[in-house]
């Protein structure tokens, strides 16, 4: 291992917190999705670092599955963005405060 596992974990923790702050503080729906992507990548870095630390392929395999899940999530979320833009003509999450039915 070229660096201690703790440093990899610190880096991915900082990335995760940055993504979480982006999700919590931004009000544009697309910026919120970008924050989610940053958080998923932080988790992927943790998995790859753990895989290198324990010399085990499972971490990298799960990082691959994580990428596929992220792709599926982005597909549905961006379809929702287009749907909301069509029906409400905005993507500001502060405007989505009404329910129907």
């Amino acid at each position: 291992m070229i660096v201690p596992l703790g440093h990899v974990l610190i880096l991915s923790g900082l990335l995760f917190v940055a993504g979480l702050l982006g999700v919590l503080l931004r009000r544009n729906l697309i910026m919120i999705l970008i924050g989610v992507e940053v958080m998923l990548n932080a988790v992927g870095l943790t998995l790859v670092g753990a895989s290198a630390y324990w010399r085990n392929p499972e971490g990298q395999l799960f990082a691959l599955l994580l990428m596929a899940v992220a792709a599926a999530e982005v597909t549905v979320a961006l379809a929702l963005v287009v749907y909301l833009k069509r029906s409400r003509s905005t993507i500001d999450v502060n405007r989505f405060n009404g329910m129907q039915g």
């Binding site: 070229i2 990899v8 697309i30 999705l33 970008i34 992507e37 990548n41 992927g44 870095l45 790859v48 670092g49 895989s51 290198a52 990298q60 990082a63 691959l64 990428m67 992220a70 792709a71 982005v74 597909t75 961006l78 963005v81 287009v82």
Partner: peptide, 28 residues
């Protein structure tokens, strides 16, 4: 990822994430 010993994941990170998903973001 490449430095941590995952060359295949590094390639997929670029092809899948930086290629496909980010282009999808730009389209939307």
């Amino acid at each position: 990822y490449f430095l941590l010993g995952a060359p295949l994941l590094a390639a997929w990170q670029i092809i899948l994430y930086a290629g496909a998903i980010m282009v999808l973001f730009l389209f939307i």
